[in-house]
């Protein structure tokens, strides 16, 4: 039902393995995809580490869930906002993150970038456009 579509944003603020918030956030995103809502993800503060490529958790004995992010496009999660200042403060650039894409069915399944690099001020504007925030 169209009137039941809300703009939902999942905000990820924590590093991936020190606490379970990142993984349990991703579980909500995957389950929530079945609800056909207008979904965006934001990564800020230590949350930007969740998207780092080349994660290896073997020594820590933890489950490496980072490959799951590349499946988000298939769940029609296509808007991922990464805060520029959070990357810079940690000496990171977009090249350090996984290249996440989605396929545009309206354009012959062309691959499009899911990640949008936004400033802190821009992210605040994007957040303000949403109806509900899930904060992890």
């Amino acid at each position: 039902m169209a009137e039941d579509i809300k703009k939902l944003m999942y905000v990820n603020r924590r590093a991936p393995y020190g606490t379970i918030y990142a993984w349990e956030s991703l579980e909500v995103v995957l389950i929530g995809a079945a609800f056909d809502q207008d979904v965006s993800l934001a990564f800020m503060d230590d949350g930007v580490y969740q998207l780092m490529k080349g994660q290896n958790t073997e020594a820590a004995g933890m489950k490496n869930f980072s490959p799951t992010y590349s499946a988000l496009g298939d769940y029609e999660v296509t808007k991922i906002y990464v805060e520029k200042e959070s990357l810079e403060e940690r000496g990171l650039t977009l090249d350090d993150l996984q290249h996440l894409v989605w396929e545009d069915e309206d354009d012959d399944w062309a691959e499009r970038d899911s990640i949008h690099l936004v400033s802190r001020a821009e992210l605040a504007d994007v957040m303000a456009e949403h109806d509900m925030m899930f904060n992890f």
Binding site: D4, K6, L8, E27, V28, I31, G32, A34, F35, Q37, M132, M133, F134, N135
Partner: peptide, 20 residues
């Protein structure tokens, strides 16, 4: 119950208030 109950709560309510 499942996580869908959280999403449903967010969709059906005027506000989602998170404590943590």
């Amino acid at each position: 119950s499942g996580l869908g109950q959280l999403i449903e709560g967010a969709v059906q309510s005027d506000r989602l208030v998170v404590f943590g």
